[in-house]
Design a protein around this nucleic acid. Structure first.
Length: 256
DNA sequence: ATCTATTCCTGGCTGC
DNA sequence: TGCAGCCAGGAATAGA
């Protein structure tokens, strides 16, 4: 999303902003509009799942939640909860059917971003391995924990654990050093492959220009319950771990 | 520190 | 065809 929306925001000045949903933008929405009005976008970055739009004063922190989208040049819909008009007649809207996303302005570092762990794409193997092996919790909830590593969601945790041949309920501290190192490498590889494929469009996700991704076609376990494991042909199983649908190959990912 | 259940919202799908 | 019930890429929170 950041890669496709950045060209539409970078260097431009916000000339008008409107916000609608009290869920996406709690508090005073007119104040928020005034805070971003006439501000120039000096950077569009990401940390984990948070999109950081740096302004010449302060910054916007955007989380897409489950169904949020930033769309360039799109018309408003009943699901448009944020509207940005920029100089040069550019328009960027924030659409969000379920309204689990958020748009926040902060003068300094957003506190929710400050609480995040290192980004999954850039954390070093050394840091990842040592942090992982210091925790006594199970792998899946740990990898979903944004304060541990920021950026993995439910799809990618399942996909990464499958590729690493690790069971989602395995205790993190009991993963051997070498396996933890492999897990780190696979985590970054899967994320990079997905980004290159435009992401996973299960139902709603599209990029800043409205294009669907293709990585869902390369999922090996997520959403493939009952289908053959790509590695051993056993049937993929769906269970629930940490209240989240969890997909795994019971033969390849032995619990230990 | 870790785990569980619950909550926010809407739409799509399944089964009766 | 209609409707109830359940499920969904997230994350905060309360209580154990």
């Amino acid at each position: 999303m950041v890669r496709t929306i950045a060209p539409y925001l970078m260097g431009r000045t916000i000339v008008r902003a409107e916000f609608g949903s009290p869920w996406v933008t709690p508090g005073d929405r007119e104040l928020l509009a005034r805070q971003v009005m006439s501000r120039r976008v000096t950077g569009v970055r990401r940390h984990g799942k948070f999109i950081l739009v740096d302004l010449d004063q302060g910054s916007l922190t955007i989380h897409l939640g489950m169904t949020g989208k930033l769309l360039a040049g799109a018309a408003r819909t009943p699901y448009t909860h944020g509207f940005f008009e920029l100089d040069g007649d550019a328009v960027v809207v924030y659409d969000d059917v379920r309204q689990f996303g958020s748009i926040e302005y902060s003068a300094g570092v957003n506190p929710r971003v400050a609480a995040l762990g290192p980004d999954a794409l850039t954390v070093t193997a050394e840091e990842f391995v040592s942090k992982l092996r210091s925790r006594t919790t199970r792998l899946k909830p740990l990898l979903l924990n944004q304060a541990f590593v920021a950026g993995l969601g439910n799809i990618y945790v399942d996909e990464v654990l499958f590729r690493a041949k690790l069971h989602p309920l395995q205790i993190a501290s009991r993963v051997r050093m070498e396996r933890a190192r492999e897990l780190h490498g696979l985590m970054q590889r899967v994320l990079q492959e997905s980004i290159a494929a435009g992401g996973s469009s299960i139902s709603d996700y599209v990029d800043g220009e409205g294009r669907k991704g293709a990585f869902q076609e390369r999922h090996r376990v997520y959403g493939r319950e009952g289908k053959p494991c790509p590695d051993c042909t056993a049937a993929i199983v769906r269970t629930v771990v940490a209240q989240r649908g969890t997909h795994l190959c019971p033969a390849c990912q032995r619990r230990r």
